[in-house]
Amino acid sequence: MKARCLMVILLASILTGVLNNFKATAQSNTNFYLPIEQILNRLTRNCASSVQVNYRSQKLMSSDRQNSVYIEATLTRSGRRGSRLVAGQCLDTNLETPVATMIVETQTGVRRINLLSIPGSGSRIKNYHAILHPVSWSSNNRYLILRIFYISAPESSTNHLIIDSRNNYSPINVIPCANAPIGGELLGFRSPTVAVFECSGYGDPSYFESIDLQSRNIRRVNSAEARGRLQSYGRVSSRFQILSRP
């Protein structure tokens, strides 16, 4: 019994640290954190019951106003008798994202891209509660950064998919902050093809990655270089909303 209590306390401490870290890094992007808070409130109302939440992310228009992208997704939690809420998470429940669609609006029409069908990316989404959110285009409107807050109790983290609009809106084969336990935070673009991320761990000092999106080269940089002249691009044309149906 004592060992079990210690384990629960440890899990609570880890999850609280993850969410507090996320709040700290997300303060500059309230439009992303508030949807997560709304969704988590719905998913944790009754841990013993099954829950489904459908959402539509904010819509982000490119700087040239030629393309707009948003995400529609469904999150499910299969309840289990005796499941309890610990540090904002229902333990011993199955978490999935069975639907995650990227909608691309262009001058010539609308495309719907099933993110779960993309090799490598689908597995990063389906078996979690994946809350996706477009956060920045590159200055040349080629690359789009999708930010993810994904949960699989007792672990939570943030990460990103980098979409190449000139390659059929496919993700490039690069995972920012791949070795960081909590994941990363986009700081901005240094150039049309170079993005900078801050990577975080459990109580460890942050480190920074500069990623060349064309060559796929990743290199660590110091704080001064990481926090140099960085910029995010795009205009939010509609806000996040929870849907009554997918």
Results as ranks from 00 to 15, higher is better:
H133V: 00
P134H: 00
P134A: 00
V135G: 04
V135F: 03
V135N: 04
V135A: 06
V135T: 14
S136H: 05
S136F: 03
W137Y: 07
S138L: 06
S139F: 04
N140G: 00
N140A: 01
R142V: 13
Y143V: 07
Y143E: 04
L144N: 10
L144A: 11
L144K: 13
L144I: 09
I145D: 05
I145S: 05
I145Q: 02
I145W: 02
L146V: 11
R147H: 06
I148C: 05
I148W: 09
I148A: 07
F149E: 12
F149S: 09
Y150D: 12
Y150M: 12
S152W: 14
S152L: 10
A153C: 05
P154C: 02
P154I: 03
E155L: 12
S156M: 12
S156R: 07
S157H: 10
T158R: 11
N159G: 06
N159D: 12
H160E: 15
L161I: 11
L161D: 11
I162N: 07
I162S: 09
I162Q: 08
I163H: 05
I163K: 06
D164Q: 05
D164Y: 09
R166D: 10
R166A: 11
R166N: 09
R166T: 12
N167Y: 01
N167V: 08
Y169L: 06
Y169K: 01
S170Q: 15
S170V: 12
S170D: 06
S170T: 14
I172V: 09
I172W: 05
I172P: 03
N173S: 12
V174P: 07
I175M: 03
P176D: 13
P176T: 12
A178Q: 15
A178W: 01
A178I: 08
N179V: 01
N179L: 08
N179G: 02
N179K: 12
A180S: 14
P181D: 07
I182R: 07
G183E: 08
G184H: 07
E185Y: 11
E185H: 13
E185I: 04
E185S: 07
E185C: 05
E185Q: 10
L186G: 06
L187S: 07
G188V: 14
F189R: 02
F189I: 05
F189E: 02
F189D: 02
R190S: 13
S191I: 01
S191P: 04
P192W: 05
T193M: 00
T193G: 00
V194L: 10
V194Y: 08
V194C: 03
V194Q: 08
A195G: 09
A195D: 09
V196W: 14
V196K: 12
V196L: 13
V196E: 06
F197I: 00
F197T: 00
F197A: 13
C199H: 13
S200T: 11
S200Y: 11
S200V: 02
G201E: 13
G201I: 01
Y202K: 10
G203C: 09
G203R: 11
D204S: 15
P205M: 10
S206Y: 07
Y207F: 15
Y207P: 06
Y207A: 03
Y207L: 06
Y207W: 14
Y207C: 05
